[in-house]
Design a protein around this nucleic acid. Structure first.
Length: 714
DNA sequence: AGTGCAACTCTTTTT
DNA sequence: GAGTTGCACT
C-alpha cells in the first residue's frame, strides 16, 4: 500500500501523531479513536518515508493478542514491518534474557515460573511459612518486582511493613537464582538491572533501538517505566547519541490494572519524565453512538486525577442506553437470554452480543441458562488448560529437560508415577545438586538402595529425552512431546486414571501435543514453545471462536481493546461493582473499569441490576451500584424499579438497614470507634454487619439488638 | 502411599 | 455452592 493513501485517510490529529518527530510524544487516545491505526501507520510511515531500519524499531504492547494484531496490520501497510520488533513487554524481556542470560545470572534455557511455582519455591526457601503465608508473600514479591524493588531496596516497606519480608524476599531470590529460572516480574526487572549495571550491553541496545513505542501505556508499571526510560537512553543523550525516539499511547481513563502494579502516574507524569514531550489528543470516537459516549462521559467525569478529554462521536446519534432493574439474578440471566433470542429471530446474529461482568464467577448463571436455551456462547479468558495437573506435569518434564536445575519441575515429576522417592529423599537430592544439576551428582547422597535405583532410572529417562532434541531434525516438537509423555510413565498413569475416574486426561495431553505441532524438535523450538505457553495463557481456541456465531461472555477487564455492536453490563450492584472492599482511589479505578465497559458498545448498551443475588452460596439483598446514579437521568431509559426490598413487610428492618449501611462510622461502648465494612442479610433474615474498629479489632453485630450500644456517627 | 471426609476458601482483574 | 486443601485413617 502506498503511504500517501494510508495517511490521507487519517483525521488531522491522527496525522499529526503519525508524522511527529524530534521530541518524545505522548498520544492520549480515547476509546475507539483509532489508536491502533495510528501506531501501525506510524511504523509503516517511519520505514517507508523516513527510511528507518525496521530492525531498530521496538513496539511493545501488554497482551499477545494486541501484539499480533499490531504486527499484522503494520505488515499489511508496509511489508518490511515484518522485521520490526512488535511484541509484548514480557516477551521482549524473555528475548532479551535469552541473549543476555549470563549477564543476568540465569540459565539460558530458563523457563518462567508462574504464580503457583512461586509459592512452591517460596515454601521450600522459607519452610516456616504456612501455605497461605507463602501465597501472600509470593504475591507481595510479585508486586515488589512490579515496583522495581530488589531485596535491598529502602522502599520495601511500602510493599510490606513486616520487617521479615525483606529476608523472605531475599531467601526467595537466592533460591530462584539457584534454579536458573525466572518469574514474571524478572522478565522486566532483570533486563532493567542488566542495562543499569552493564554499560556495554546498554550501549549496544542504544545503538540498536532508534524508535520505541509503547501501547496501553496507562497500564505500565514502575519497572516497565524504568526499563523504557533506560532503554531510551534519554539520560545519556548528547550530540553523538541523541537518544531514541519515544512514543507512548494510552488513555488515563482506561487504567484498570493498579492492583497488578500498574502506575497511572506513568502516564500522568510522562511529560515531566521525558522533557520536551509533545502531546496529541485523539478525541474523535469512531466506535459508539453519541448517546453511549454521553453516558460514558457522565460517569468518568466523576473521577479526579485525570488529564481530561471529551470524546466526540463520528457516528452521530443512535439508540439511548437502557438500565434494567430486575428482582433476582435468575431474572437477569433470563432477561439477557430473551433479548438476545428476540434479536436473533429478527436476524441479528449472536456474535453481535457481549455480556460483561465484574467477576468470573458471574458467568456460571449465563452458561447454564444459555446451555438450556441452546444459545451458543464462548467464554473469553481463564481457560485453565495449562493449569491442569496432567498438562503441568508434562510441562515440568519439558522444563527439566531444558534446565536440569529446575527444582520445582524436578519435585513435581520425580515421584510421579510413584517411584519410592519421597519428600525426604527429594530434599537430600536437591540439597546436593542445587545450582548445578539435579540429574547427577546424587550418587554420593545417602539414600536407600531402592530409591537410588529409581532415581537412576528417572534421570536416565530425562537424559534420553534430552538426546531426542537435535538442531537439524526435521521432526516436529509435537512428536517429541509424545515421546516425553511415553517415557515419563505418565501416559500409563493417566490412562489408568481415565479408566477408573472417567477423566479426560489423555485427551488433554493429546491437545498439548497438537499445540506443539508448529515448533521444530530442537532446544530452541522447545524454549519458544514454553515461552508461547507461559507468556500467553489465555487464547487457545481462536480460530474456532471467531468463525462461530456465538454470544461473548467476558469479564470487564478482558474487554480492553475489544468492541461489540451490543453490550450488556450485568451485576450493576453495590458490592459487586464496585466491589465491596473498595474505597478512595480504588473506587476511581472501578469507575474507569465501568467506563471501559460502556465504551465497548457500538450501537446498543444495556445495564442490569438485581435486588437479590446469591453470593458464596448465600442469598443477599443488593442495592444498585452507586455508579448508576452518576448517569444523568435523561441519558438513559430505565425499566423496572430500583429495589426497596423491605418496605412492605418489615419497616423496622428497613430502617435498620438504612441506618447501618456499609461505610457508616459507628461508636461502640466497648470497642470504640469503627466503620461498617460489610453488611448483609443472612439466610435467616437477620441483618448482620461487620465492623472494623480503630483498634484493629473486628466484630460482627446484629444491629437489631445493639441499637443502644452501637451508635451511628457522622 | 493412597483414599476419604471435613474444613475452608473463593470471587477481582493477567503477563 | 463448588472446588480445593489438609488431615487422619487404612
Amino acid at each position: 500500500m502506498d503511504s500517501d493513501s494510508y495517511i490521507s485517510i487519517l483525521n488531522p490529529d491522527q496525522k499529526k501523531a503519525v508524522v511527529h518527530e524530534g521530541s518524545p510524544l505522548l498520544i492520549l487516545a480515547g476509546a475507539g479513536s483509532g489508536k491502533t491505526r495510528v501506531i501501525t501507520t506510524k511504523i509503516a510511515y517511519l520505514i517507508a518515508e523516513k527510511h528507518v531500519d525496521p530492525f531498530s524499531i521496538l513496539a511493545v504492547t501488554f497482551t499477545k493478542k494486541a501484539a499480533n494484531e499490531m504486527k499484522e496490520r503494520a505488515v499489511s501497510l508496509e511489508p518490511r514491518a515484518e522485521y520490526a520488533q512488535i511484541r509484548t513487554f514480557h516477551s521482549w524481556g524473555s528475548y532479551f534474557l535469552r541473549t543476555h542470560a549470563s549477564d543476568a545470572g540465569i540459565d539460558k534455557n530458563f523457563t518462567v515460573y508462574d504464580d503457583d511455582d512461586m509459592v512452591t519455591l517460596l515454601s521450600k526457601a522459607v519452610p516456616s511459612l504456612s501455605k497461605q503465608q507463602a501465597s501472600v508473600a509470593a504475591h507481595k514479591i510479585s508486586l515488589a518486582k512490579d515496583y522495581c524493588y530488589t531485596p535491598d531496596s529502602e522502599d520495601l516497606y511500602k510493599i510490606s511493613e513486616d520487617p521479615s519480608f525483606r529476608d523472605i524476599y531475599d531467601a526467595y531470590e537466592r533460591r530462584l537464582r539457584e534454579t536458573g529460572n525466572v518469574d514474571f516480574g524478572d522478565l522486566i526487572l532483570l533486563p532493567y538491572l542488566v542495562l543499569k549495571n552493564n554499560d556495554f550491553v546498554r550501549h549496544e541496545l542504544h545503538r540498536r533501538y532508534r524508535v520505541i513505542m509503547v501501547d496501553e501505556y496507562q497500564d505500565s508499571n514502575v519497572a516497565q517505566f524504568k526499563l523504557l526510560h533506560i532503554l531510551s537512553g534519554i539520560d545519556e543523550s548528547d550530540d553523538s547519541f541523541p537518544g531514541s525516539y519515544v512514543c507512548v499511547v494510552g488513555d488515563d481513563d482506561q487504567s484498570i490494572y493498579k492492583f497488578r502494579g500498574a502506575d497511572i502516574n506513568n502516564i500522568l507524569n510522562f511529560q515531566n519524565q521525558f522533557p520536551g514531550t509533545a502531546l496529541v489528543r485523539l478525541e474523535t470516537n469512531y466506535r459508539s453512538s453519541s448517546e453511549i459516549l454521553a453516558c460514558a462521559d457522565s460517569v468518568v467525569k466523576n473521577n479526579e486525577g485525570r488529564l481530561g478529554k471529551t470524546l466526540v462521536s463520528a457516528r452521530g446519534k443512535g439508540k439511548i442506553p437502557t438500565l434494567v432493574f430486575l428482582p433476582t439474578q435468575d431474572d437477569e440471566t433470563q432477561f439477557c437470554a430473551e433479548i438476545i433470542e428476540q434479536a436473533h429471530s429478527k436476524g441479528i446474529s449472536y456474535s453481535e452480543w457481549a455480556i460483561l461482568y465484574r467477576t468470573n464467577a458471574q458467568s456460571l448463571g449465563f452458561e447454564s441458562e444459555f446451555l438450556h436455551r441452546k444459545i451458543p456462547y464462548s467464554i473469553v479468558g481463564s481457560l485453565k488448560f495449562y493449569e491442569r495437573e496432567e498438562v503441568k506435569d508434562i510441562l515440568a518434564w519439558i522444563s527439566l529437560i531444558a534446565n536440569p536445575k529446575d527444582e520445582i519441575a524436578f519435585r513435581r515429576v520425580v515421584n510421579k508415577p510413584a517411584r519410592g522417592i519421597g519428600n525426604a529423599s527429594q530434599d537430600k537430592i536437591i540439597a546436593s545438586g542445587r545450582g548445578i544439576s539435579l540429574l547427577e551428582g546424587w550418587e554420593n547422597v545417602k539414600l536407600s538402595k531402592k530409591c537410588m535405583e529409581a532415581l537412576a532410572d528417572f534421570c536416565e529417562s530425562v537424559k534420553e529425552c534430552q538426546s531426542l532434541l537435535s538442531e537439524q531434525s526435521q521432526e516436529k516438537l509435537s512428536s517429541f512431546i509424545e515421546n516425553v509423555i511415553k517415557k515419563s510413565g505418565l501416559e500409563e498413569h493417566y490412562a489408568a486414571q481415565d479408566e477408573i475416574a472417567g477423566t479426560q486426561k489423555i485427551a488433554n495431553l493429546q491437545e498439548l501435543i497438537n499445540s506443539a505441532v508448529l515448533y521444530p524438535c530442537s532446544m530452541q523450538g522447545l524454549l519458544d514453545f514454553m515461552d508461547h505457553i507461559q507468556l500467553d495463557r489465555t487464547i487457545e481456541n481462536e480460530e474456532e471462536d471467531s468463525s462461530r456465531d456465538c454470544v461473548t461472555l467476558i469479564t470487564l477487564h478482558n474487554t480492553k481493546g475489544l468492541e461489540f455492536p451490543r453490550v450488556i453490563i450485568t451485576g450493576m450492584e453495590s458490592g459487586i461493582f464496585p466491589r465491596e472492599d473498595k474505597s478512595g482511589e480504588e473506587i476511581e479505578e472501578e469507575r474507569r473499569l465501568f467506563y471501559v465497559g460502556i465504551t465497548r458498545a457500538q450501537n446498543e448498551l444495556y445495564l442490569t441490576s438485581c435486588g437479590l443475588r446469591r453470593l458464596y452460596g448465600r442469598t443477599n439483598y443488593m442495592s444498585p451500584s452507586p455508579f448508576l446514579n452518576e448517569i444523568d437521568k435523561d441519558l438513559i431509559r430505565v425499566i423496572g424499579e430500583a429495589p426497596v426490598s423491605f418496605s412492605s413487610e418489615d419497616p423496622e428492618l428497613a430502617s435498620i438497614v438504612k441506618k447501618y449501611k456499609k461505610g457508616v462510622c459507628v461508636y461502640h461502648d466497648d470497642y470504640g470507634h469503627g466503620q461498617i465494612v460489610h453488611a448483609e442479610t443472612s439466610d435467616e433474615g437477620e441483618y448482620v454487619i461487620s465492623v472494623k474498629f480503630e483498634t484493629g479489632g473486628f466484630a460482627k453485630f446484629l444491629p437489631k439488638y445493639q441499637s443502644k450500644s452501637l451508635i451511628v456517627e457522622d
